[in-house]
């Protein structure tokens, strides 16, 4: 059959569904082993966070697209959670190989890392369906409009610069991402670099300040946020 925009969009969604069909929406056995190897086991806080952010996501999703669509919000969050655990496991395997360590207590007990990783997974899911809408030009699917980036970081109260820190690792370890999706994540990166990371409450300014202090070049006449 000839490729059409609709067929291409459906194929993207089917590909995501196929990859995540075998993935779990709970930590896998391998992940639990990583959690058990930590100085402080992060399992409970991870499950609690996923549950709490799920409530926020579903509530905001329904507000954005209509209360009648709350079930769709739950489905999207479920897919995002599966991708989050899948990528988390791949990242840990990759870091284990790179650093030759098994104890990832600091990383796995860092709430910002988890929220960033989950946000990235959810952005992939949202964009997959968003791409479908843009390609199919179907009027009854325009409800996704309000969910485009940076919607996800706003509703999860995440700083754009923190999301930026996970995108590259996410792309590196997730082989199923389509070329279109990698381009989308790259666009998110550009948006962050060009404007979102430079908002006054961005953690980037603290990093710049720390960096200048480490270099012994702190200029007191000009605050970092100038």
């Amino acid at each position: 059959l000839p490729q059409t925009p609709v067929r291409a969009a459906m194929s993207t969604i089917q590909q995501l569904m196929a990859v995540l069909k075998s993935a779990s929406d709970k930590p896998t056995e391998k992940l639990i082993l990583y959690f058990n190897d930590c100085t402080v086991n992060p399992m409970e806080s991870i499950l609690k966070r996923v549950k709490e952010l799920g409530c926020t996501f579903k509530e905001k999703f329904a507000e954005a697209v209509g209360q009648g669509c709350s079930e769709i919000g739950s489905q999207r969050y479920g897919l995002g959670t599966r991708l989050y655990y899948r990528v988390m496991e791949s990242i840990l395997k990759s870091e284990e190989k790179r650093l030759s360590i098994h104890n990832f207590s600091k990383l796995l007990n860092n709430g910002i890392f988890h929220t960033s990783l989950l946000a990235c997974a959810l952005e992939v899911v949202i964009a997959t369906y968003g791409i479908s809408r843009n390609t199919s030009q179907s009027n009854n699917m325009t409800m996704e409009t309000d969910l485009s980036f940076p919607w996800i970081i706003n509703i999860l109260d995440l700083k754009a610069f923190d999301l930026y820190k996970v995108i590259e690792s996410f792309i590196k370890v997730e082989p199923s991402l389509t070329r279109e999706m990698i381009k989308h994540l790259e666009c998110c990166e550009h948006q962050i670099m060009e404007s979102l990371a430079w908002r006054s409450d961005s953690p980037l300014f603290d990093l710049i300040k720390q960096s200048k202090e480490q270099d012994g070049q702190t200029d007191h006449s000009e605050p970092a946020n100038c």
């Binding site: 990832f104 600091k106 990383l107 996970v166 590259e168 990698i182």
Partner: peptide, 21 residues
């Protein structure tokens, strides 16, 4: 991923970005 520009330095990973040893 051939068109994607990777910004992490050689030998650097996500642990460093979240201040982990």
């Amino acid at each position: 991923t051939q068109d994607y520009h990777f910004g992490l330095e050689e030998g650097e990973g996500i642990s460093e970005l979240f201040d982990c040893d």
